[in-house]
């Protein structure tokens, strides 16, 4: 991981910027004096947002294959994600929330969180399959339109994690939903989650060019 963005490193970046004379150039202008240092600083500063992670090809290939099997429809280079908590300890949620922040900024990669499973392409499920959540989780899945993906996030969602032997838990999320991708970790690092989600986006890109759908037998009137 690179250094956390801090003021010091921003200034370093500013010092190393290829246009050191800009500051002086601007200083000649008669702009409001308070605005100028701020503006200059913002112009010269490195962005807080980090570049997206590389995506492993094997994962993409495997996912593309699944997509082929699941559906020929193309979702484009964007995915609407619905988080579904199936009874996590809330550690996984903390890291998912970090993805929306400035540092990871998943929206710029075509990924965004939506408020309803009805708007979602991906269900991002955290926590073991708690029996008290089974019905709600399955209903959310039924609400999501096809084609859809289920991503199990965190060791709990993968196989029940430390809770797998409990009377209150079915096991991993795979016990109650068809899982397409697992992202292990307790909780997984945000970078790893981003990698997994980007693999989904890539898988769609690798999918064949949009095929004309089969002609439907429209009823004749």
């Amino acid at each position: 991981m690179s250094e956390p963005p801090e003021n010091a490193s921003q200034q370093d970046a500013a010092a190393k910027a290829p246009w050191p004379s800009l500051r002086q150039a601007l200083s000649g202008l008669s702009w409001p004096p308070m605005l100028l240092p701020r503006l200059t600083c913002n112009l010269l500063r490195a962005p807080l947002t980090e570049s997206g992670p590389p995506v492993p090809e094997v994962t993409v290939a495997a996912l593309a294959e699944r997509l082929e099997a699941a559906s020929r429809a193309r979702l484009g280079r964007s995915l609407a994600i619905r988080h579904v908590g199936s009874g996590s300890c809330n550690g996984c949620e903390l890291e998912i929330n970090a993805l929306s922040g400035v540092v990871y900024d998943l929206e710029r990669l075509g990924l965004r969180f939506v408020a309803s499973p009805r708007h979602a392409d991906v269900l991002l499920v955290t926590g073991p399959a708690c029996r008290n959540m089974t019905e709600a989780v399955q209903r959310a899945w039924q609400c999501a339109p096809e084609p859809k993906w289920v991503v199990a996030v965190g060791d709990c969602a993968v196989d029940g994690g430390v809770f797998r032997d409990s009377y209150a838990v079915e096991g991993g999320v795979g016990q109650v939903l068809p899982v397409d991708l697992v992202i292990p970790g307790c909780p997984p690092m945000p970078g790893l989650m981003l990698e997994g989600l980007l693999a989904l986006v890539e898988a769609q890109r690798e999918d064949a060019e949009p095929q004309p759908g089969p002609l439907r037998n429209e009823p004749e009137f």
Partner: peptide, 23 residues
């Protein structure tokens, strides 16, 4: 509430404190 009930207290029983600390 209760949707996230994982049976944690039951899982702790019969384990050493070191092992149960994970829960």
């Amino acid at each position: 509430l209760g949707y996230a009930h994982k049976g944690t207290l039951g899982l702790m029983r019969g384990k050493s404190p070191r092992a149960a600390a994970r829960f």
